[in-house]
Design a protein around this nucleic acid. Structure first.
Lengths: 350, 350
DNA sequence: CTGTTAGCGCTTTCAT
DNA sequence: ATGAAAGCGCTAACAG
């Protein structure tokens, strides 16, 4: 039998109820709380549903009525695709994903490009709350999320009124690893993440930390400056090499520039393991020994760091992602300091 | 002035319209098609919106009415978090993300655990279509997606009626690289992905390809069997080492087992670069030379493959992800063969 | 255990 | 250019 054209409209719960000879509510319960419905009624509903090709309640209608979507919005800075290339971001997402899987939430990834449409994309996202990957102080997305009045947590920073924050104490951690790296050095240097979204690369002696509008970059610079002070190096004598991108290639290129300067550094504190690995490439190419000629440290304790015996800061992005997700789901965003630890291996002298 | 408790209900479009002294429709147009509304009316609406803290139309209500969500569902097999660890999956997601960012879509990642709740999670997802990461033939999620009658594309496989498919010709590619790898070998072997969701590891001479319920694994086995035939090796003499997980550590362990057998292989075709790298670790640890003592090939042409001079199959997961996204957005799922190429470097003899 | 009522907040359609 | 009516498909709240 050929279906008539009216059959093309997908069946609704009302259709199923009518066909099953029950009220719409009984049909609704049959799908949502099967135990609340008598076995025969449930059977009739199921049969009718199969006959009509009805798969289940429409998600949008349900969300509208229930006033929740069971989906978490995850806002990733700038070029989204980059997030998947960054192992730290990937681990963070994995942590969110674990909690979502466990609690039957979906994860809505919200592409952000840095352009003006970003705020619109955030506004139209059907989600119950937001998790924001670390961004700059003046990211317009922050105000949008704030205005939406949904639970939201930022990872890394900045601090925003009303939004949660999950981060390690970057300044303290940088102070520790910086001290280990700069110990017994003559000419310390820093390999830094971009300062802001302009991502200009530069070599700046004694760079003022507050120049950075990425809080993570800023706090680590502050910590490295503290470390310089503790190891008796005037900050002005510490060259900060700011990379435009957090990857090996850029770090290697900047390190080459550092090494070709008059006061060749004999200690480099990097803000990421990938940067440190790029720096090691340049250092080895220059025929220098680590740590005898030059000490180096990374950040994040990636598998590569362990392979290379790199001194680094360990933190669990995965746990932090999970923590963010739980806070948003519980509608209880708070400020949480995550755990970190210094992992001393053999690329530093201490 | 203290807000009364009734103010706590978020403002609706109707509230804004009332406050602005216009009809609800004028307010709606002011948000959705500003040019269709006179400047003064628009101004009044905007002012009222600000006064009431109204951020914009409710996404769920809009989706219900419009009958679309502007979000793509991405179903990732089994442990979602694993997808973020797999560089190929990450590249695929990045490709989807690029297209989503460009067309102002959100990406709804649907965690899948292999358990019975998976189908429910798919059913309740508010999305306009699905992209499925490669899975097994009998994944129950496939039937669910099919029943939903939304546009859907599978990457890798299996083929499913009514759903699109984007994949390279895995058999043909395996035939080519297998031939290059097995050339002038005495004892070829294969390092394989898991056969199915049970993920049992095993060493099986002449493993029957159809045993695998992951189509990607199956097709590559078929291609390697073709290659064995072309290079005059009875398939029964080719040991297939099936790894439980597609990573370096498992590949290394399985390779160690291969190397400790009587007929030590002198050629190994792996299904992934990560596997090949793990195998190389084992090979070097055993003091063997590549390719003189043993030839090896990978798959996917990762950056590491280039570094190591690994012979491999190149394909762009990023492009394939984008292709999937475009097909779903256009509601035009088709079967598309993606491009691949053999990259001969110096771990094979040919 | 089952049913009735009353919307959720919005936009399509059709008038004016 | 603006507005009134209608209803998207569902479920909370309550009554029987």
């Amino acid at each position: 039998m050929v279906k008539s054209s009216s059959d093309r409209r997908p069946a609704t719960l009302a259709d199923v109820a009518a066909k099953a000879g029950v009220s719409v509510m009984t049909a609704s319960y049959a799908f949502n709380r099967p135990q609340r419905v008598s076995a025969p009624a449930r059977a009739k509903v199921e049969e009718a549903a199969v006959a009509l090709g009805y798969v289940g309640p429409d998600p949008n209608a349900r969300s509208l009525r229930r006033r929740r979507t069971s989906s978490l919005g995850v806002v990733l800075g700038e070029h989204l695709s980059y997030a998947f290339d960054d192992p730290q971001a990937a681990a963070f997402l994995a942590g969110i994903a674990d909690v979502c899987a466990e609690r039957s939430y979906a994860m809505t990834i919200l592409p952000t490009t840095g352009g003006p449409e970003d705020t619109r994309r955030i506004r139209v996202a059907a989600v119950d709350g937001f998790i924001l990957w670390t961004t700059v102080d003046d990211d317009p997305v922050l105000a949008t999320v704030q205005a939406l009045r949904l639970p939201a947590v930022i990872h890394g920073g900045p601090r925003v009124d009303g939004l949660g924050l999950v981060s390690i104490d970057n300044r303290a951690a940088a102070r520790e690893i910086g001290t280990a790296t700069f110990a017994r050095a003559e000419h310390p240097a820093v390999l830094a993440f971009p300062l802001d979204r302009r991502r200009e690369q530069q070599l700046a002696p004694g760079l003022t930390p507050s120049t950075a509008s990425f809080p993570v970059t800023r706090d680590r610079l502050l910590g490295f400056r503290d470390a310089a002070r503790r190891t008796r190096h005037p900050w002005q004598s510490v060259t900060v090499a700011v990379c435009s991108h957090n990857d090996r290639a850029h770090a290697r290129a900047m390190t080459e520039r550092l090494l070709s300067r008059p006061d060749t550094p004999d200690a480099i504190a990097a803000m990421g393991d990938e940067q440190a690995i790029g720096a090691l490439d340049a250092i080895h190419a220059a025929g220098l020994r680590v740590p005898a000629d030059i000490a180096i440290s990374g950040w994040d304790d990636s598998p590569f760091a362990a392979d290379l015996g790199l001194t680094t800061v360990a933190q669990s992005m995965r746990d932090q992602g999970g923590e963010c997700a739980r806070m948003v789901m519980a509608n209880a965003p708070r400020h949480v300091q995550a755990a970190w630890s210094l992992v001393r291996r053999n690329t530093t002298r201490d």
